[in-house]
């Protein structure tokens, strides 16, 4: 899954014009920036923020899906969902490692998540209320993630770009798996079809919000584009997502919950209704239905596991001491 359009990174930087110019030339020549290379402080900060948000999103994203592992309605689905949630955890691990190359530890990032300082994708502040939501998350949420992440495979920062290649392959598998869940429901009993439609109704708008604010309201897009951390604007990616997804819904016989949605021949894409940005900002600022529960759950897991992590360290220390004593 994915961190939405970057929230609140500070791209300010203080280097000499000569340094910045040389750096920009490397970026423009499509050279990858590696962790040990000199880089502007603003570039480093933006990446730490973005990769951290992305990693946190993967980890928090395990919760709404984990909510259905114990109730998955067939053994095949149960196994597939377990494997998927495990993939998301793997992405988190990968991304924390990529962020660590920039000089910030996983512990620091975890603390920032728990204190509310670091953000994660707001989509996970919506609850999963039926089995269909597991399909919809794969289809729409992972689908939106792919739109965002494919360009990140060409991100100027090497470790992030390389991590994204593997992550995108797995996400694309998740997206197809999610679509297949929804297809099975859409072709199933009337109750199953209703479950699928209700799920689409609830997740459609939050999925569109995953791409972040309109370009006109996006504070830090320009600098990220210049540094080639970002390749497309929020609105461009959102449009691509809508154009790809609407025909999929039509194929399933499901109705996209937007009365203003219509094909615009001239632009070769769909026009859509206005997104409720009040809702977007409300949830980003911590007032969605699940914000508090998600952080509470993450903190509880962390605190309940403290004695385990302490024991592992203590044991490693004892082993080391015994080895030295034996030598």
């Amino acid at each position: 899954m994915y961190s939405q359009g970057l929230i609140g990174a500070d791209g300010q930087t203080n280097e000499t014009p000569e340094f910045l110019e040389t750096f920009q030339k490397r970026i423009d020549a499509e050279e990858k920036v590696e962790p040990t290379d000199a880089m502007p402080e603003g570039y480093r900060r933006t990446l730490v923020r973005q990769i951290g948000q992305h990693a946190h999103s993967e980890i928090v994203g395990m919760l709404p899906e984990g909510n259905w592992i114990t109730r998955a309605p067939s053994l095949r689905r149960k196994a597939a969902l377990l494997a998927k949630v495990q993939d998301e955890g793997g992405h988190g691990l990968y991304l924390y490692s990529a962020a660590e190359t920039l000089g910030v530890s996983r512990e620091e990032m975890t603390e920032e998540l728990h204190s509310g300082k670091a953000k994660y994708s707001s989509i996970f502040n919506y609850p999963t209320l039926s089995w269909a939501d597991i399909g919809t998350i794969g289809w729409l949420v992972d689908g939106a993630a792919i739109m965002n992440q494919i360009p990140l495979c060409r991100c100027s920062f090497g470790p992030y770009a390389r991590a994204m290649i593997r992550v995108c392959k797995e996400e694309s598998f998740h997206q197809r798996q999610g679509y297949e869940i929804i297809m099975t429901l859409a072709q199933g009993t009337p109750e199953q079809k209703e479950m699928a439609q209700d799920s689409l109704n609830r997740w459609w708008w939050p999925s569109l919000m995953m791409f972040g604010p309109h370009d006109a309201d996006s504070e830090h897009s320009d600098q990220s584009m210049t540094w080639k951390i970002k390749r497309f604007t929020n609105d461009q990616l959102r449009q691509k997502f809508i154009d790809a997804t609407v025909p999929q819904a039509e194929y399933l016989g499901l109705k996209v919950p937007d009365p203003d949605l219509k094909w615009n021949e001239e632009k070769g894409g769909y026009d859509h209704g206005e997104i409720d940005w009040d809702e977007f900002w409300r949830v980003v600022k911590g007032h969605g239905r699940m914000n508090r529960d998600r952080i509470k759950d993450r903190r509880a897991a962390w605190e309940r596991g403290a004695w385990v992590r302490e024991a592992a360290l203590a044991h490693a220390e004892k082993r080391r001491a015994r080895k030295i004593a034996a030598e």
Binding site: G89, D297, G305
Partner: peptide, 12 residues
């Protein structure tokens, strides 16, 4: 345990 393990490695 999924999503609630003492560390990410155990969540995997």
């Amino acid at each position: 345990w999924c999503g609630h393990a003492p560390m990410l490695e155990e969540d995997l």
